[in-house]
């Protein structure tokens, strides 16, 4: 069975399996094999980031518009991209204490861009959709069960109470105190559910790795050596 698999796939599965086992070896204790895999992960991830940035951002956005405009559907060189290039170069002024204030310019540009974009993005993608979803009829016309109506009411009250908890301009006493206390209960349920989901997501990843080790590596590549698989 194994002889029909391409060599690079066999090699890839062996490498992936050994690295997976190397990481799992940490469950026993910290050891050199784990540390090698861990440091390799850091190096490979950093290299991946550099390559993707180089190929997906630097080449199409900076180099090609200047040196190979036809590749990005331009009639001639676009010298405007020299401006962000120069801004980016100013980042390196941090290495020269006398001129390190120049590194504020690219940071200011990125902060301005992100802040300006954040305002409409927060309104359109978070505030308005959540507001719209909250301000719905509790018992809409049609086939809605009393349980669903009660759940909708609970949701509405829950949102108001959670917001009351985050209202810090008045002391949490009286009605506000009661609402904020109920808000804490909703927050605790949300945190608990979030925790449960996080655990299950990690368990799902764990199952995926164990299945890889068993199906793709052990049963496909190792067991045939012993007459199994």
């Amino acid at each position: 069975m194994a002889e029909t698999i391409p060599l690079e796939q066999v090699l890839g599965t062996w490498v992936a399996a050994l690295l997976t086992l190397a990481i799992f070896s940490f469950l026993y204790r910290d050891n050199p094999v784990y540390k090698i895999a861990e440091h390799m992960f850091v190096g490979v991830s950093a290299g991946y980031g550099v390559v993707i940035t180089w190929r997906e951002a630097v080449i199409p956005d900076l180099i090609q518009p200047l040196l190979d405009p036809a590749a990005v559907d331009l009639a001639g060189p676009n010298y405007v991209v020299l401006i962000p290039g120069a801004l980016g170069m100013l980042m390196f002024s941090r290495f020269f204490p006398r001129y390190d204030w120049l590194s504020r310019w690219p940071i200011a540009f990125v902060m301005g861009y992100s802040s300006g974009l954040a305002i409409p993005a927060a309104i359109q993608m978070q505030l308005l959709p959540q507001l719209h979803a909250t301000l719905q009829p509790v018992w809409p016309a049609g086939e809605v069960t009393w349980w669903m109506a009660l759940s909708n009411l609970l949701l509405f009250v829950g949102v108001l109470c959670t917001l009351a908890y985050f209202y810090f301009s008045r002391e949490h006493k009286g009605a506000l105190g009661v609402a904020s206390r109920i808000g804490i209960f909703f927050l605790m349920v949300a945190f608990g559910a979030g925790f449960g989901q996080a655990v299950m997501a990690r368990v799902s990843l764990l199952i995926g790795r164990v299945r890889f080790l068993y199906d793709d590596w052990w049963m496909t590549l190792v067991a045939p050596w012993f007459g199994g698989g």
Partner: peptide, 15 residues
């Protein structure tokens, strides 16, 4: 329901 209520309050605050 309860989780969405809690998370929605947080999302309003974050936004």
């Amino acid at each position: 329901f309860p989780t969405v209520a809690g998370k929605r309050g947080i999302i309003f605050g974050v936004a």
